[in-house]
Simulated assay, not measured.
Amino acid sequence: MTKDTEILARRRVLVVASPKGGVGKSSLSRNILVSAVMAGFRVIGADLNPQQTLWKWHERREKMRASFPEVMTAPVTLGTLGDWRKTVALVEDYDLVVIDTPPSIETHYGVMINLCAAAHHVLVPCGATLDDVDSVTPWMRTLTAAKVPASFVMNRVNNRVNSFKTYQTKLLAVGQLCPVAVPQIEDVHLSAAKGLAVPDLISRRHQETFDALWSYVAREVGLPVSEASLSADPRATAPPPNRKTSEAIAAVEQSENAKGLAIAAALVQLVEGISHDLGKRVAAVHAQMDAIINKE
């Protein structure tokens, strides 16, 4: 057993790492954190990203919990990539550590390889674009060559378009691919603004996606998966939320509906405006043609 694996032997570690920025490492990390908490595990996030995205989400969550303590705790600790061993060593009393990493892998290549090699699994988020695929495939080849257990996870994608399958095939040719593709979900951003995650929301519209993602992650890092906990609302075993908590969480969901209606109305106005403008231009062209014909 190496020194690094000895450090991690007392808890399971999931590393979320991608050389591509903007692929949703932090959003995946926080939703996995909350899913793990609701599955009954002691879990903590470790934010090694200088932008501190996961940490700032944690601070918003703590503010929410100050007013609504029924919101389940999902602790996060700050650290640096260069000192990841110390950060992980300080969190012994947890079943799982979810590590959010910076996107600048190239400038910390050796450190990143050491961290990933010591982890139980590495998730490599990727969008469904050629730029994303070109960026992450060399990183996966490096992890595979180092015998690091890793898999791609497609995030913020539209799986209804033909290009989705094209990029899915390209990723599968290089490495393991998580069978759960996370679509572009407005709930992810709206909930994060309140320090929440999709599993916190009363609406279970997108819950199956994150239930499935958690099942996959849990098995990959070696944690048990309870079918009973996935078939029912994971909050059922927790103390029932009070009226204010329910209203606060519901407000996040209602704001999504209101935003969706506003966007739809704006699109209708845009289409109507384009149609009206196009009609005027067509009429003007016809008038010009009539004038030319009558002049002749």
Rank of each mutant, 00 (worst) to 15 (best):
L267N: 14
M154L: 12
L130E: 13
S231K: 11
A119Q: 05
N159G: 12
H206V: 07
V225Y: 10
D95K: 06
S18T: 02
G127Y: 02
K170T: 05
V88I: 15
S246E: 14
N294L: 15
S229R: 15
K25V: 07
A287H: 08
Q168L: 15
M289S: 02
M140S: 02
H120T: 08
L213G: 05
I32M: 13
I32S: 05
I32E: 05
V198Q: 08
L196P: 07
V23E: 01
P234D: 03
V13Q: 07
L8P: 00
F68A: 10
A287D: 04
S203P: 02
T144K: 13
V285I: 13
M140P: 01
S229C: 09
R281E: 13
K86Y: 08
S255N: 05
T209P: 02
I263L: 14
D200M: 05
G273Y: 12
R204V: 08
P240E: 12
P241E: 11
V43W: 09
F152W: 09
L33M: 14
G45L: 06
L190E: 13
A9W: 06
F164G: 05
K25H: 08
N294D: 12
F41A: 09
E296G: 14
S191A: 14
K147F: 04
E59P: 08
G22Q: 06
T142G: 00
P50E: 07
N242D: 14
E272A: 12
R205Q: 11
M1G: 11
T144Q: 10
K259S: 13
E220S: 15
T129N: 07
N159W: 12
Y109K: 12
T129V: 02
N159L: 10
I185L: 15
E272V: 13
D200Y: 09
F210L: 06
K170G: 09
Q207A: 12
M289P: 01
N155T: 10
A291T: 01
A265H: 10
R85V: 06
I293E: 10
E220W: 09
T5H: 14
S203Q: 02
R12G: 06
I293H: 06
P102M: 00
I263Q: 11
R219V: 10
S151R: 01
V122W: 01
V16Q: 05
S255I: 03
D83L: 10
S163I: 14
W84Y: 11
S191I: 02
E227D: 11
L267V: 07
T169W: 12
D100V: 08
L171S: 07
K165S: 13
V182Q: 01
L172P: 04
Q51F: 09
A284D: 11
H189S: 13
A236K: 12
S215E: 11
E186R: 14
S135K: 08
V98R: 03
I7D: 09
I113Q: 08
A228D: 11
D233H: 02
R42N: 06
L14K: 07
G40N: 01
E220H: 10
P234I: 08
P69R: 01
A232T: 12
V136M: 05
R243Q: 14
I202M: 02
D93F: 03
P138H: 07
K86A: 15
I292F: 10
